[in-house]
Design a protein around this nucleic acid. Structure first.
Lengths: 144, 144
DNA sequence: TCCTTCATGTCAACATTCTGACACGTCGGG
DNA sequence: CCCGACGTGTCAGAATGTTGACATGAAGGA
């Protein structure tokens, strides 16, 4: 599509879309959507996150994350206490099955990211990551 | 959300989402969605694109772009011939009103991109853009 | 103490996008 | 010449995400 690629926003969207598609594809054999995998990965690194926290971490609303969580719970991949001592937030935990699924799927997802990163000269990878994070910070609503 | 930011895929999604949200916000006064604006911008740079071509350029299916295009057509911002001499593809053109809307909205959108870019040292901006493009190429389905 | 503010989970309605499917026109090789 | 592959526009159905709203509990200041 030619000279649109001179816009940083365009290539940003393009890369994100391509990554999403590729991730979707490798996740298909595991019967996991990208949202579901993101949720599992978040829980793997930060056990006990609540529904709303998971939503923010995966960049979706808490209503959407609620549906994702129900699916995962029904498949026995995560656990939430039906009732909680204090407040509303129900801490979510990975089940052993969930941890196994995450471990298996994460391997495939890392291959995708590896393939993407391999296109970048090694010395520039850290800077790329930091620059992108700086972009996100500069444009976040809280930064206004 | 801590150490997830060490994953390039995560910050990529984060930046893209932040940019989308910010663009959505500045586009609201013009009563344009991001998809609609992308469509107008594509037509501004490449007049006569068909429905399917616009969809590919904006990273959505041709079915979705069809709905976007109908809305823009109904508002008098674009024109498509009802019938065409050869084939199915109907070349889309911006109307004068569409061109005016695009010009006005593009100014606001460029401010957003400017704010995002301003977080990056000037010398690195070109490399960032090229690295992102390389990422997209490396991971595109055709690259497999 | 009270009460205002904030955060959470959940329900409902709505919007947007995608996949599957069909009909039609073009282009190419056999 | 024919026919298969390909691209396009469109319809229908399903999946997914979002906003708005409500009830409830926690936290902090007057």
């Amino acid at each position: 599509m030619g000279h649109l690629t001179e816009s940083l926003g365009y290539v940003l969207k393009q890369s994100a879309k391509a990554l999403h598609l590729a991730t979707e594809e490798v996740l298909r054999p595991f019967d996991l959507t990208v949202a579901q995998f993101s949720c599992l990965e978040l829980l793997g690194r930060h056990p006990g996150l609540s529904n709303a926290e998971l939503g923010r971490g995966a960049f979706v609303s808490r209503q959407s994350m609620n549906l994702v969580l129900r699916g995962l719970q029904q498949r026995g991949l995560v656990t939430r206490p039906d009732t909680v001592a204090t407040g509303w937030a129900r801490p979510t935990q990975l089940t052993p099955e969930g941890r196994a699924q995450l471990h298996a799927a994460a391997e495939s997802v890392r291959k995708v990211e590896k393939r993407m990163i391999s296109a970048i000269p090694e010395k520039r990878r850290v800077k790329l990551r930091k620059d992108l994070a700086a972009c996100a910070d500069a444009i976040a609503p809280s930064a206004r």
